[in-house]
Computed example of a mutant assay.
Amino acid sequence: MDMKLEVVVVPVADVDRARAFYEKLGWRLDADFTDGEDFRVVQFTPPGSPCSIIFGTRISAATPGSSEGLHLVVPDIEAARAELADRGVEVSEVFHDAGGVFHRAGTEGRVTGPDPERRSYSSFLSFSDPDGNGWVLQEITTRLPGR
């Protein structure tokens, strides 16, 4: 049976502020529904993604800003960084891991610049939404077998 990840809940404190941020990213607004004053759900989808995010009022009991390691895959990490910066997003420098593997939590082991060999899966950048939910962009140019 196929199981596809469709939606990720992102906990936010201010729904309108979060909506404005994700609009600024250029993501598609799929829904903004309310059911009275105490329930609201907003859904956005990143360009080209089959998975969306939702946030809102009474959507999650998680602490706003507590999501981290939300990954977006891009074919060109430097072009992605330039686009985000042009949209006014505070974004990290492109980095790779000192050990040459997947990045570590936080900033430990980060080396500035893309992977020296430009290996697929090895170059990253990061940014956060206004609540501190942490996003990572990962450059993938050639998929591993079976992916």
Rank of each mutant, 00 (worst) to 15 (best):
G88D: 04
L72A: 10
I59T: 02
R87T: 14
S60K: 00
G65A: 01
R81H: 09
S92M: 07
V73Y: 06
G69T: 07
D76N: 04
A62P: 11
V74W: 02
L72T: 13
P75L: 03
T63F: 02
H71C: 13
V74Q: 05
I77M: 05
S60A: 00
A79R: 15
L84D: 11
S67I: 06
A62L: 05
E78H: 08
S92V: 09
E68Y: 05
V73K: 04
I59G: 01
A79N: 10
V74I: 04
V74R: 04
R58V: 02
V74G: 03
H71Y: 14
D76A: 02
I59P: 00
R87S: 12
A62S: 12
G88I: 01
E90K: 15
V74K: 04
A85T: 12
R81G: 11
R87L: 10
E78Q: 09
E78I: 15
I59V: 05
E68I: 12
H71T: 15
D76S: 04
T63H: 05
V74M: 02
S66Y: 02
D86G: 11
A79L: 11
S67T: 10
G65T: 01
E90I: 14
G88N: 03
S60F: 00
I77Y: 03
V89H: 10
G65W: 00
H71E: 10
A80Y: 13
S66M: 04
E68H: 09
P64Q: 03
A82R: 15
V74C: 03
S67N: 10
V89S: 13
E68F: 05
L72R: 10
L72G: 12
G69W: 04
I59L: 02
P75V: 05
G88R: 03
A79F: 09
L70Y: 06
A80C: 12
E90H: 15
V74S: 03
P64R: 04
L70S: 08
H71Q: 13
E83F: 13
G69I: 05
S60D: 02
E68G: 13
V91F: 07
G69E: 08
S67W: 04
S66A: 07
A82W: 15
A79M: 13
S60W: 00
G69L: 05
S67E: 06
G69D: 11
G65P: 02
G65F: 00
H71K: 14
I77E: 06
P75N: 08
A85W: 11
I59E: 01
V73Q: 09
